[in-house]
Design a protein around this nucleic acid. Structure first.
Length: 516
RNA sequence: GGUGGGUUCGUAUAACGGUUAGUACUCAGGAUUUUCAUUCCUGCAAUAGGAGUUCGAUUCUCCUACCCACUACCA
């Protein structure tokens, strides 16, 4: 979710300013490669309607070679290996970086040692003079190690006593003293890959990135990035650091564990970790509309300055503004997410919802036949209904649902007769003085020869019951119990008109049977 | 520990330095309805604390508290 929101804000900003949205895969950690993760990102963004201008083709594949539409290809950093080394070396030559030969094990030992002494080991201005690197070793030794060993790195030589003055679009002016910063690894000989810091700066420069909109966790690295641009003599982009998405209860950032625990998805699409087999539910699979998901995400940390809450993606492009982005972290609220989906479900057309409902009906053994131009029909014995019958049902129930999946629970009795009666409701309504009247009403319906429409039937029913001075609510609830098996549901006239006179009579008769 | 960031109802947020601090979600009542749901109405509920600047501070400054991030040859 957090990643999608960051991508969304980038997309909105780019589109609003007539820019291009580029998808670049930052896979410079060969140890953390997860098969399928890249495709997952592409699929997720596409589901959300966030389509990159550059970086993937129409089929969602990563572009390998430069073309007119994709001038900066390749967009996968693991395929750009050759580019980074010379930039790393350039920094060493110009004195902004140095070679470090300390092994990962040596450094780990130093960290453990410092920790035991209650201190923190920092590879930086205090310690670099006593470690094994091109600053302390002779030129010959350095050259020999560069040739003969393969686990050295290039580290940035953090300047001493400098105040780096930075500007963040969202947070404003920020100052950091370089004395508190360490000498970050920029390039690793072992896998001939850069770290994020180098790769990001080099690629942003090469790909002509004008705005960097990323998560707040990058704010502590911003001084390094500023210094890197300075060292290369490149014009830097503008930066905006987004606050994090927080878990709904308690403190801390949203993690996939929270979703499992509290019952909501934290992934846009269902995700199965190929290594562990562990799966995480997705918004798509949970029945959310992508528009609702995107709208909800957009409002988490941004507001339009008006009271409008519902925005389509193009409307978001129009309305988005960086100075309305919140500085503080936003706690995610699953209830509000559902509310958004409910609103979008209402806005959907009946035919679209019908198409989505058909598979659900089929799962419950209901066959759907015909088309939207075909006549309305149903055959409850054969568990078969026409598409237009489904559409009629959908138009009646859509305002009662949050998800398409709710439709069945709300309206199953419009597709098959109840096989049992809710005991609680039976105890409440099914009393002789009431159901005896209900059966008389049933007889009246059987003889009803007015137009078979909701309004006509409703009026006739009301006139008949009130005319006899019978208790409206009690009688109607008995009929509802017979028709739906429970004490809740649609209006009697609505149900009756839909299921038809024959089915109505059969259900009333069945209810009569059950009491004998 | 160090560095940086943050702090308005439970949640998301609004408020040129001047408002009875607004809206939405949730929740609680009520109205409508043949039930349920919808819809509508009403209500509950906040400027973290303390100084300072000012005629006046949610808004500006400082301090404190709390929360978060970073502190990897991860991003």
């Amino acid at each position: 979710m957090g990643g999608v929101r960051t991508a969304l804000y980038n997309y909105l900003y780019a589109k609003q300013h007539g820019g291009d949205f580029i998808l670049r895969i930052e896979d410079t950690d060969s140890h953390r490669f997860v098969p399928g993760a890249e495709q997952y990102i592409i699929d997720s963004l596409r589901w959300c309607g966030i389509v990159p201008d550059e970086g993937v083709d129409a089929e969602g594949k990563v572009v390998e070679t430069p073309s007119e539409r994709h001038p900066h290809a390749p967009y996968r950093q693991s395929q750009r290996r050759g580019i980074y080394r010379k930039y790393a070396e350039q920094l060493v030559e110009s004195g902004f970086a140095y070679y470090a030969f300390d092994s990962a094990e040596e450094l780990a030992a130093k960290r453990a040692e410092a920790e035991a002494a209650g201190q923190t080991f920092i590879y930086g201005q205090q310690s670099r003079g006593s470690l094994r690197n091109s600053l302390t070793l002779s030129g010959e030794e350095t050259a020999r190690l560069l040739e003969s060993t393969t686990d050295w790195t290039v580290r940035f030589k953090m300047p001493e006593g400098r105040i780096v003055e930075m500007d963040d679009i969202i947070r404003g002016h920020i100052e950091v003293n370089t004395d508190t910063l360490d000498d970050k690894v920029l390039w690793k000989r072992a896998d001939e890959l850069p770290t994020y810091h180098l790769a990001n700066i080099v690629d942003d420069h090469l790909m002509e990135i004008t705005e960097v909109i990323r998560g707040e966790e990058w704010l502590p690295s911003l001084p390094l990035h500023y210094l890197l641009y300075e060292a290369f003599g490149w014009e830097r982009p503008r930066f905006a650091h987004l606050s994090l998405l927080l878990k709904p209860v308690g403190n801390g950032k949203l993690s996939k564990r929270d979703g499992d625990k509290l019952g909501f998805p934290v992934f846009p699409l269902k995700w199965t970790n190929p290594e562990t087999g562990e799966t995480s539910r997705g918004y798509r699979e949970d029945g959310y509309f992508p528009e609702a998901f995107v709208n909800m995400l957009a409002m988490l940390g941004w507001n339009p300055g008006t009271e409008q809450e519902l925005f389509s993606l193009p409307e978001l492009v129009q309305a988005f503004s960086m100075d309305k982005v919140q500085k503080a972290g936003a706690k995610f609220n699953p209830e509000k997410a559902k509310w958004f989906n409910k609103e979008y479900l209402r806005m959907k057309g009946d035919e679209e919802l019908t198409e989505l409902f058909v598979p659900v009906l089929q799962e419950h053994g209901i066959e759907v036949t015909g088309c939207f131009k075909c006549p309305v029909s149903h055959d409850f014995d054969a568990a078969s209904v026409s598409k237009n019958y489904v559409k009629a049902v959908v138009s009646l129930i859509k305002e009662r649902a949050t998800f398409v999946a709710d439709f069945w629970d709300i309206a199953w009795y419009l597709f098959k007769a109840p096989s049992s009666y809710e005991p609680k409701d039976t105890a409440k309504f099914w009393k002789e003085e009431n159901y005896s009247l209900a059966f008389k009403v049933a007889d009246f319906v059987q003889g009803f020869d007015g137009p078979w429409e909701k309004e006509a039937l409703e009026h006739a029913l009301e006139e008949f019951i009130r005319g006899n001075e019978w208790p409206m609510g009690k009688v109607m609830n008995c009929i509802r119990l017979a028709l739906t098996g429970s004490g809740s549901g649609l209006g009697i006239a609505d149900i009756t008109v839909l299921i038809g006179k024959d089915e109505f009579c059969r259900r009333m008769a069945a209810a009569k049977q059950s009491i004998v």
